[in-house]
């Protein structure tokens, strides 16, 4: 209970701050985008699987929106989001059928390899993707209404926050379900799971598709708020950020990746000014610090507080 109250308080702060500092609205919307994607990465991390290629699904979501907006003329927010989720889910299904056979380093590197193929294709398939120039995304209509840019950005921020809440609850329930609880069991003892008659590849495929959908939603929000997308979204540095956000936030609860994203995007806002060339160093050093000193991430801090609160 205390846990939920803390999360609510954080969410309220998250909603209130941009009202006082309007320039943060953009940053916070990006936080949501990265948070969704990192939540997908975190689901796989619970099974001990590290994807260093999930930026591919982020890019698929973004390019679905970009394609609909600039090539197909579908400038409607909800259909764009739904399409991004569906298309990235389909990519996740096809790629996942292959990936769920692998563990550990093979899983990590194969995801990296596939994302690099994806990055190359996004750069080369000019007619479809605009090549390295990328695609521009017009402000879409919302529920049939034409809205101004400022109103749209507010809708995206607060609608995104609402979506994050709903999705967070759905993912939380998933993680507590038999299929979700099986994820850490895959890491700790896959053989025993098989000996319980459970098809581990199916457990993982479901998680993989889910994580791709989440990354796709994140990518779609990214495309909509930034208004322009390039193949860099699929580059391994983006994947690295998503892994860092997930590990930094902590995989103990669904709020973790969003907390991690808030932290990282805030650091980035500062880094752009003070250390633009050292962004990857910051990410890498951050990863090392978290792994060695904060294994449960920032979310682990909340866990510690609530545990103290509940056990006298």
């Amino acid at each position: 209970m205390l846990h939920f109250i803390i999360i609510l308080a954080l969410a309220a702060a998250f909603a209130a701050i941009p009202a006082f500092f309007p320039w943060l609205a953009f940053v916070f919307t990006l936080v949501l985008a990265k948070g969704f994607a990192a939540l997908g990465v975190a689901i796989l991390l619970r099974a001990g699987l590290i994807s260093i290629g999930h930026a591919l699904f982020y890019a698929v979501g973004a390019y679905t929106v970009g394609f609909l907006s600039s090539r197909a003329g579908v400038n409607l927010l909800i259909p764009q989001l739904v399409a991004a989720a569906v298309v990235s889910g389909l990519f996740g299904l096809v790629i996942g059928l292959f990936m769920v056979r692998y563990r550990g380093i093979f899983f990590a590197m194969l995801n990296l390899a596939v994302s690099m193929v994806g990055y190359t294709l996004l750069s080369k398939l000019y007619t479809l993707t605009g090549g390295t120039d990328g695609l521009s995304i017009a402000t879409p209509r919302v529920l049939g209404m034409t809205v101004g840019r400022e109103a749209f950005e507010a809708i995206l921020l607060y609608g995104g926050l609402g979506l994050a809440f709903v999705v967070g609850i759905v993912v939380h329930r998933y993680l507590k379900s038999p299929m979700g609880e099986a994820l850490p069991a895959v890491e700790s003892n896959e053989i025993r799971l098989e000996y319980l008659g459970i098809a581990v590849p199916r457990v993982l495929l479901f998680a993989y598709v889910g994580s791709a959908v989440l990354a796709g939603i994140g990518g779609a929000i990214h495309a909509l708020i930034v208004g322009h997308i390039t193949p860099d979204l699929a580059y391994w540095t983006t994947s690295g950020q998503l892994v860092l956000v997930a590990v930094l936030g902590g995989i103990g609860g669904v709020a973790g990746p969003f907390i991690g994203a808030t932290f990282l995007e805030s650091v980035r806002a500062a880094a752009v000014i003070y250390a633009p060339d050292a962004w990857n160093i910051i990410i890498g050093a951050g990863l090392l610090v978290v792994i060695f000193f904060l294994p449960r991430g920032l979310h682990g801090l909340i866990e510690r507080i609530t545990r103290k609160g509940e056990r006298p």
Binding site: P178, G180, S188, R192, F206
Partner: peptide
């Protein structure tokens, strides 16, 4: 399953035998 409690271990096994493929109802 070393990341789970004894009870959770057993619940996974029981669930494996009766309705494992659920994703929105608790273990």
């Amino acid at each position: 399953f070393t990341e789970h409690t004894v009870l959770e271990n057993l619940m996974l096994a029981v669930a494996a035998n009766q309705g494992f493929w659920r994703w929105q109802s608790p273990l």
